[in-house]
Each structure stands twice: as structure tokens, then as C-alpha cells.
């Protein structure tokens, strides 16, 4: 077996791991009770899922320029997904998307203006 075959196989394994992570986090989107838990679950697909697919593609077609592209893609993906999750969570809290009842401590609620009825 040649080295490129081995890299192809490892690359495929990474790509399938990434696909599995994304599918599981999609299940989490349906299963979890509130906005904040769902945003946490989507974090696994946006972080590890996409990163391992990019890594797998890099291993299957390795070159110097592709290495640089992959590093930039992973860093940009991680930064933007984190900022996006925070924006969604903050907007949700400001628009009265209260956490699910199983949330046993909520210290942010103390700073909340009680609104009658909600939106």
C-alpha cells in the first residue's frame, strides 16, 4: 500500500467523522429543550464537524497552498461560529426566550426588566 492510499483512507475517515458530528448535532437541534442548549449543540457541528471535514479534504489532496487554505478556513470558521452563537443567544434572551424549566440557576434573570405578556 502506498502512502497516498493511506492518506486517502485517513482523509475519508476524518470526512465521515465530520459528517457524523453534523448529523448528531442536527438530532440535538430537535431534541434539546431551549434556544441556549440548541446553540451549544450546534457548536459541535460548526467547530469539530467542519474542521474535521476540512482536515480530511486536506489529507486527500495535500499541498502547501492547500495547507494554508485549510488553516485559514478552520480559524475563520471557528471565530465566526462563536460570534454568531453569542449574537443568537443574546438576541434570544433580550426577546424573552426564557431558558427551559430544567435550568436550575439563572443569574442573568436578576438583571431582567420584567415585561408583562412578552413578545
Amino acid at each position: 500500500m502506498e502512502l497516498t492510499d493511506l492518506a486517502d483512507i485517513v482523509g475519508l475517515v476524518f470526512i465521515f467523522l465530520g459528517i457524523a458530528t453534523i448529523i448528531i448535532s442536527a438530532i440535538g437541534l430537535f431534541k434539546l429543550p431551549d434556544l441556549y442548549l440548541r446553540a451549544s449543540a450546534v457548536g459541535t457541528s460548526a467547530g469539530l464537524g467542519v474542521a474535521s471535514i476540512v482536515l480530511g479534504a486536506l489529507l486527500m489532496d495535500f499541498s502547501g497552498t492547500n495547507l494554508i487554505k485549510a488553516i485559514i478556513a478552520i480559524i475563520a470558521q471557528l471565530l465566526t461560529s462563536a460570534v454568531g452563537s453569542m449574537a443568537i443567544a443574546r438576541a434570544g434572551y433580550l426577546n424573552n426566550a426564557l431558558p427551559a424549566p430544567i435550568t436550575h440557576i439563572d443569574e442573568l434573570r436578576l438583571t431582567r426588566r420584567e415585561t408583562s405578556g412578552g413578545r
Partner: peptide, 10 residues
């Protein structure tokens, strides 16, 4: 936020 399971709200 990047660590799944924890999330900064504000």
C-alpha cells in the same frame, strides 16, 4: 462559546 456545552450570553 467555542467549547460546546458552554455559551457566553452577555
Amino acid at each position: 462559546t467555542l467549547t460546546p456545552g458552554t455559551l457566553t450570553i452577555t
